[in-house]
């Protein structure tokens, strides 16, 4: 699927914010972006699982990416959104501070994460896109969801 978005050495990413940083997700993975509905906590779920929400009759889990990346839990405000994603055949929501735009990122602007960052969180990253004004951190969604699942089994 990802191939379909690639055109002339570019990929399209949905950019969202977490604690004033910019993150990007491959647009092919994003099903939709919704405002925050009531989130129901899931008993005994790992910290990064914020809870579940009702998406037009379907119950989908929501991950708190701030918690996942070890960022302080932020206030939920008017700009907070849930990005609904398709990961490994499952539908998952990601709680983010806000969604800003869709960007075209030239493939040659993406560096592997190891070049600039180190630490355990780098496994969640696919790369860093260096654009004129800023850095956009591209996420490895499969890994994030995978990890949440493993934590759940261990819980």
């Amino acid at each position: 699927m990802a191939d379909m978005q690639t055109n002339d050495g570019e990929e399209q990413v949905v950019v969202f914010e977490l604690a004033n940083e910019h993150y990007g997700i491959d647009i092919g993975r994003v099903q939709e972006i919704i405002r925050l509905p009531a989130i129901t906590a899931v008993p005994r779920a790992p910290e990064c699982v914020e809870g579940v929400v009702n998406l037009r009759g379907r119950v989908i889990p929501v991950l708190n990416l701030r918690t996942r990346f070890g960022l302080p839990d932020g206030e939920r405000g008017r700009s907070s959104r849930i990005v609904v994603l398709e990961v490994n055949g499952n539908t998952v929501g990601a709680l983010v501070d806000g969604v800003s735009e869709v960007l075209r990122v030239p493939v040659n602007a993406v560096e592997p994460p190891g070049a600039t960052l180190t630490g355990p969180e780098t496994a969640h990253l696919r790369g860093i896109a260096k654009l004129e004004e800023r850095l956009v951190i591209l996420l490895n969604l499969d890994h994030i969801v995978d990890l949440a699942q493993r934590e759940l089994v261990a819980a």
């Binding site: 699982v49 889990p61 499952n90 759940l152």
Partner: peptide, 14 residues
């Protein structure tokens, strides 16, 4: 009854 979805799978007590 709805399932909690593939990611969460079975949650103890739920």
């Amino acid at each position: 009854i709805k399932s909690l979805g593939g990611v969460l799978g079975e949650v103890d007590g739920v």
